[in-house]
Design a protein around this nucleic acid. Sequence first.
DNA 1: CGGGAGGATGGCACCGCTGTCATTGCCGCC
DNA 2: GGCGGCAATGACAGCGGTGCCATCCTCCCG
Lengths: 349, 349
Amino acid sequence: MAGPDRKPTIIDVARLAGASIKTVSRVINKERYVSPDMQERIEKAVAELGYQPNMMARSLASERSNLIGHLYGDAGGPYTLEIQVGLLNRCRAHGYHLMIEEIDYRSPNVEQRASAIVNQMRLDGVVLTAPVTDNPIVLRILEEAGVPYVRVTPQQESETSPSVRIDERQAAYTLTQHLLALGHRRIGFIKGKANHTATILRYTGYCEALTDAGVTVDPVLVEQGEFTYASAVACARRLLDQPHRPTAIFASNDEMAAAVVAEAHNRGFSLPANLSVVGFDDTPLAEMMWPPLTTVRQPVREMAETAADILIGLLSQRGKVDWPKPVPHQVLAHTILLRQSTARPPGKA
Amino acid sequence: MAGPDRKPTIIDVARLAGASIKTVSRVINKERYVSPDMQERIEKAVAELGYQPNMMARSLASERSNLIGHLYGDAGGPYTLEIQVGLLNRCRAHGYHLMIEEIDYRSPNVEQRASAIVNQMRLDGVVLTAPVTDNPIVLRILEEAGVPYVRVTPQQESETSPSVRIDERQAAYTLTQHLLALGHRRIGFIKGKANHTATILRYTGYCEALTDAGVTVDPVLVEQGEFTYASAVACARRLLDQPHRPTAIFASNDEMAAAVVAEAHNRGFSLPANLSVVGFDDTPLAEMMWPPLTTVRQPVREMAETAADILIGLLSQRGKVDWPKPVPHQVLAHTILLRQSTARPPGKA
DNA sequence: CGGGAGGATGGCACCGCTGTCATTGCCGCC
DNA sequence: GGCGGCAATGACAGCGGTGCCATCCTCCCG
């Protein structure tokens, strides 16, 4: 059973099927104009030889690499992974392969690196996630190279590239409303890393909900975090040290919410009786911590899948229309998950 | 400043530098036998044109793709991501690119898919993580294709492929010893998914520690979990429902430990006073839950880096030695993290 | 019954690079 | 002074496909 030691090429298939190379190529690529019996003969030959087209040769000749790149900044925990799973799902379904590249957006040679990634590998398309979604250098290089790209949760929607996101402002608004409805009036807020889109939108939603409910935003109750556990511990301390402390705390992500919960536990608070806490993102952590965290779920995987679909759709019509306009900007639905970390404030049965 | 719209090729560089294509190729590939001034001229031309070698063409001509694949089964949360980060670090450092492929090891066409991945993309090497590390079909295909691969935490070390792992048995042994040292004698154990290597090794370590300390392994205290939160909730219930219940519980991973903690909280236990809990893996969850979990940290990223190093080392000497023998089997050091989820058993001040 | 449309197939250049081998020039050594 | 040896360079044939165009055949229609 030891076949020929060299991998079969299209030539071998052609010879075996008694057809020309070109016709085999047509069958492989599911092009039209091949008679049924010829097709069958070729398919049989392909199966018999276990022929697998060489992607490298294919790409070289056709200027299409069947490669989609995922560019991201720092490996953002479960989020990044979910994105990849989503992308992978779609890539697989459409015969694309996924290439992942981290890019240090702070480094001075972002340009060089981004260019290397895009140009050397001849990526067909790219999906961008935070924090490179809005990096001007990366975007420029992509534009220059003419590589289509889709951005997941960009800061600003652009006219040249599609995007996918959820309405974070709205989500934060609703979540804050939930706390208000429970009777909370002093609601602390821990912001995320400065300048992140998410930080701004979530904070805006919080402020608007309060204002709309006739509650003034008290700057004393707003802390600046960094999206990390450690940063939030300090914030939680300051918040809980206050004489007239908040009865609820809205942390801009789950990790920071976990820090608040831990700090509260440390002080012997019973949750949620003494303090309500909400997070954002619904990381796996959220339902495994105790008490399970009320939070917002972004359909991250689905967002990635949508991004991939848009990209692949774009690629498939390459050459026909250069770019559909206006480019799509999808807003996916989020879910508010009410779990057990929220309750009426103490004293208000 | 709008250069030529076509990407520069090696020919353009050669022309500009007044050299032959081949010599440019030599410079690009850092081969010997190029005079200093020629080298300089070529490098200048490369810089001036912003020339980037086309990987596809390079691969086609050289039979080397500079592509390393990461094959994994189900997206295993933070673990998989850490692996990728580790691999990425090394790939970047050595000019390789990472291609990630999920492979449904239960599907009937694993063979087809594995073969497609390996043969179509002409991967130079592959890193395997659970649960495909020991899939016979995948391994066979890799062997047949002659693609070097490294396995991270395989069930069985093989003579044909290097591996990287930690001593899980020893880690579980030490962790159990810790509980014993605190004074616990009734120590519950929640096993992982049946047939996983990790499950067996961790359980073995637990048993041996007990036995060595003169404590009999009580089957009533051993539950079969599945590495998931949900599975462990049921186990925890059964364990805690027992009249003579354990004073400590060793869950085979952090996620299951979180379930035990949650169940204990539900029952109003105060942790760790009423019940000690330990996990395994040190997922981000471990330090963010409350109380922070005593667990074992596998240097996952480092393991991935080691795997990549081994692989890249192998690739770089391709053709010289076909395979170093014996192949390396690295065992990396783990860390026992004593946090606040463990204490002396109740009644033993 | 001639001509044209369009399906089916093949020929061949070429994608951008590397491997192999040939060639050149120079140096050292007997 | 002739010659082997080696550094330095180049010529050229592929690697395994695809794009474009030519060709052939069949069928339909005026």
